[in-house]
Amino acid sequence: MNGIKIVVLAKQVPDTRNVGPDAMKADGTVNRSVLPAIFNPEDLNALEQALRIKEQYEGVTVTLLTMGPVRAAEIIREGLYRGADDGVLLTDRAFAGSDTLATSYALALAVRRLAPDLVIGGRQAIDGDTAQVGPQVAEKLGWPQVTYAEEMHFEGERLIIRRRLERGVETVSAPLPMVVTVNGTAPACRYRNARLVMKYKYARTDTELQAESADYIAASRPLMKITEWGVDAIGADTEQLGLSGSPTKVKEIENVILQSKESRRLTSADKDIESLVRELLENHTIG
């Protein structure tokens, strides 16, 4: 499929493996500023699929699309280092607090403006594990979706996709345009390319440029621009964004207090283990 345009949906996520006690704000939303932020793992699997198609055919372009704070430009650079052609950062205060439905509304509008033939994203993001945004973007676009992809290739004009399901594997054939979400079982993303790192090291969004000092910018050659879009650029209705545009509301957040049982403390010494085993045998828990 020569000349097709691919958009990869990616998200910068807090690394949920390193969550501290200040991770949540009082209103129940995530306090992203205190957490290490990473490229959502399955979105990297998605990028790899796009880059493979780009390598195989002539004139394929790969655009990374992400929604988030200015800081999320980091993952666009990360994508450029690995072989994406360009990136778009959707950033606006109006997006803050969006649930999956409001998020997919904004992403679908941006996808429409980019007018790709194929959208590929990760199955789910590790900060919510909902797996909702891919299908919801597809629905808003009115395009078919194929979820849990682990391998894909073209046969004529149709994409042949192998899906990994809970209890098996399914292969489907689908026409473009469409949305594919990629599973973590798909091949890992290639590493950064040193030449691309040199080329895109100073790729910046407008907001980033304003925040950095003039000297720094003068020393940064070559300078590349990362597209930054707000609500106006995608023609979004702010009523459908953020908290007001989100059907789901957080009613209550409870801190987890585990109810302590009266536990018996044992060591790994032989006598402790043997008496435990005997007790479990006597009360018929085992045996």
């Binding site: 969550v19 991770a23 129940g28 995530v30 957040i253 409870e254 801190n255 987890v256």
Partner: peptide
């Protein structure tokens, strides 16, 4: 979110 909280939606 990291299991620190139980959310009611």
């Amino acid at each position: 979110f990291g299991g620190n909280i139980i959310a009611t939606i």
